[in-house]
Design a protein around this nucleic acid. Structure first.
Lengths: 253, 253
DNA sequence: ATATTATGTGCGAATATCGCACGGATTGCA
DNA sequence: TGCAATCCGTGCGATATTCGCACATAATAT
């Protein structure tokens, strides 16, 4: 390792963990070795250590993520007071709008749900929960996050190797994407239709307090839900109102 | 390190992470050094590495958990299909019972919420969300989990150094606790009142599929809610029904 | 102004890690 | 059943990494 400030073994272990995150499910040691590129013996020691520390558990022949990672996430959620303060606000917004509402932030080159609430009437759920990740380029929350991120981040997002269309409607032109992000920044909200899931649309607004890391609030619905500008205005109104309240929480953290 | 199968540096780094989980919030390097017992230089390198890998982020002078841990938890939740399959079942149960319903499992010596749902009418929320941890000894879910765990685990739970009463009603006698756990095992459910939060009571039932790690389903309500045996029976009925459905999911994973 | 505490850096000694090579166990296939 | 192909555990020497001190600087409190 060139940099003496980075503990190589720790970094490797964390990379190994990340392999389980991407390919959710069980991985055998040979599979993990292949994915991570580590020697078989190294892979073995990393797995044993991660198991010892509770982050992995054996499942049949292989390993998979253990509940330990949930507790860790719980620590994060606790620190931003997700359970006690954010959740009620999201619930209220969800009931008021009769839409699924989520608080999201950015984890590297993905959007990640921090908390969410669905109205009681929710018929169809997208299956997104706390910790679910979404692409930055083709979702409303993702673009709104990029709109609040540093230019380098936007650049990186556009240049990513694994950028691929999710639907036929997914915008793939870098200039158009950059424009969409700029529009989101200018008008203070982002609307995306059909680009991630055909038939679905999302709206996102920024959350007040810019706690170094940007947060956004988003809703998801069937694609025609936001066609009417009166409806859109109402959604934006409630979202922005909620965003201010949410922002007030993380401000004094 | 005595054991050549455990990568010491990785273990240290994970221990450092765990420090942030317990003392949710921001930790400065000296504080972390104190907590973890590592040398200042070591602490520094671990922090830099964890930051480099995205698990920690700077906040003012110190470090705190980064959204990265959420994505990791997302991987776990995805693997048990929490979002798509479990959530709807919990929602339905919550609405039917008009109670907060949670799926929990055990992470070392704590119960941890895997998923939860609250009815639309929820007035008071306990502030527990995905990843929230609860004590094993003084909650219904905790005792039900212990009832399904190995005897050594129960023993460890009883012998823990940091066992302390959470309310005046918290049962602290090891024999009585052991009896309560045995009762839970025998009757297939667990009821606990006032032992964790004064004024609150919980009911828990085991989840069908014993996927090596035990899962339980629990509800929480104000303490008098389960006094009436008819009500309790109805709650148990719905919970057990839900438990079977949930068990069917993780069975084929 | 001075004491105290936090932070950054360099380096030699100590040692943990790497990766190979070997043997045994398990699995799949003919 | 026998054979082939993996998979898994272990030992060990060479190497690279980590440790922890010591020094220097910066920030903060007294």
């Amino acid at each position: 390792m060139i940099n003496r400030d980075i503990a190589a073994t720790l970094a490797k272990g964390l990379d190994a963990l990340a392999c389980f995150e991407q390919r959710g499910g069980t991985l055998t040691m040979p599979e993990l070795g292949e994915l991570s590129g580590f020697d078989r013996a190294t892979t073995r020691r990393l797995c044993l250590t991660l198991e010892h520390c509770g982050y992995l558990e054996r499942h049949g022949k292989g390993y998979r993520l253990a509940p330990r990672v949930l507790s860790l996430a719980g620590g994060y959620l606790h620190q931003i007071e997700a359970g006690r303060k954010v959740q009620p606000l999201l619930r209220h917004a969800a009931e008021t709008l009769d839409l699924e509402v989520a608080l999201a932030t950015r984890d590297r080159m993905q959007a990640v749900y921090v908390d969410r609430a669905a109205p009681a009437s929710a018929r169809v759920t997208l299956g997104l929960s706390v910790g679910s990740t979404l692409p930055l380029l083709h979702t409303a929350v993702g673009r709104m996050l990029l709109a609040r991120s540093a230019p380098e981040t936007v650049q990186q997002a556009l240049e990513q190797a694994n950028n691929r269309p999710h639907t036929e409607a997914s915008q793939m032109d870098p200039d158009a994407l950059r424009a969409a992000i700029q529009t989101a920044r200018d008008q203070g909200y982002c609307l995306a239709r059909n680009e991630f899931e055909t038939g679905a649309a999302g709206v996102a607004v920024p959350v007040g307090a810019l706690d170094d890391t940007p947060f956004v609030l988003g809703v998801t619905a069937s694609v025609n839900r936001f066609d009417d500008s009166t409806t859109l205005d109402r959604v934006l109104d409630v979202l922005r109102h909620t965003a201010i309240s949410v922002g007030r929480i993380s401000a004094d953290a």
